[in-house]
Design a protein around this nucleic acid. Structure first.
Lengths: 198, 198
DNA sequence: CCTACCGATCGGTAGG
DNA sequence: CCTACCGATCGGTAGG
């Protein structure tokens, strides 16, 4: 809670620049494949200066992962679940998630999916507990859907299959191709639900 | 093609030991998070000795990825597609793939899924061309299935969704849990096909 | 496959 | 946030 004035005023933006630049490098080269000099160069700093903003390289990954995860959660939790049918809600959830993942305006999404694994100790635990909230949201949505349309048992496994299909898109989706991320979300939901919607 | 006698006779096993030990380290710490000294220690060598067997650390990753991918392909291509219905074939394919991925007797599977991305140049190209054969096999199987049971259009996307669900299991499957890999394969196929099988 | 070693680079720090 | 730097470690090599 105790932060220097400098950090609160001027530091905030610079911190974010560092995190976002690092995120893209981590995505392309992996966490351990990226050096602090790579990051510093990308934000036009000298490598030692990074450590004025962050205590360690690990903390940069941690900050990026937490920010990316929090922003994704915020988007998903803003969807008015109580005003929608289970099917509509699930469709909007999927669209929103895919847009977040594939448009990835901040570059942070790949940290949340993959790179966070390189964290250890307390930094990793913090990520895991936020991930639990994320998974709980999806599981609740999937179970609600399953009861509404009569999907099979094994809802826990099925939800994870679905999330695998969803997050796996980042390995093959091509931006500017024939579908926008949101349109791909519709294809995904239809793939799952087509036989139940007739 | 020209190999020293030493490599052909005694070297083969030692080479495999190195590759398999390295694979588990790459899986746990990532390619760049693993040092040649880590690998050497795991096989009770001195770090310099690795370079008697491989020209570089990259070549160890390459060898592991190619071996893992080739062995997976061999298992999948050994399934007698002509003697089975599209549905049965697809089910056996899924079971076999999940057993390969989740039992992972060699430790090479994670290289094929993730770590190969850290390769560059010709080594990466070689992996990609073998991966193309792998993807073509799955796409053919999925299309055959789709025609047989009347799955929706977008077969390319759908197949990739399915592969995402399948390969994504490695992020959450717990060995020795309530399902064997093959049983999980059945759950996965039922998840996809249940409404069409009634 | 070991011994002995190299130049380069790593994450990070001290002092301003 | 820069300057100047550190000790440790990196992937890899020469010579046997």
């Amino acid at each position: 809670m105790v932060r220097s004035k400098k950090l609160q005023i001027g530091g905030g933006n610079r911190r974010q620049e560092i995190v976002h630049a690092a995120a893209r490098l981590f995505r392309d080269r992996g966490f351990h494949g990226t050096t602090v000099r790579d990051i510093a160069l990308a934000v036009h700093m000298h490598s030692g200066s990074l450590f004025y903003h962050f205590p360690s390289k690990n903390d940069i990954l941690h900050a990026g992962t937490m920010e990316g995860l929090a922003s994704c959660l915020a988007e998903l939790e803003a969807i008015p679940v109580d005003e929608m049918t289970p099917i509509d809600y699930f469709r909007v959830l999927t669209r929103t998630q895919l847009d977040h993942l594939l448009s990835d305006r901040t570059g942070l999404a790949p940290l949340v999916v993959d790179e966070w694994r390189h964290l250890t100790g307390a930094l990793r635990d913090e990520v895991m507990s936020l991930r639990n909230r994320y998974e709980a949201l999806w599981l609740a949505a999937y179970e609600r859907l399953a009861h509404a349309v009569g999907l099979s048992r094994h809802e826990k496994f099925s939800c994870w299959f679905f999330l695998g299909a969803l997050l796996g898109t980042k390995n093959w989706y091509v931006r500017g191709g024939e579908k926008t991320p949101q349109e791909l979300g519709d294809v995904l939901v239809d793939w799952l639900l087509a036989p139940y919607l007739k």
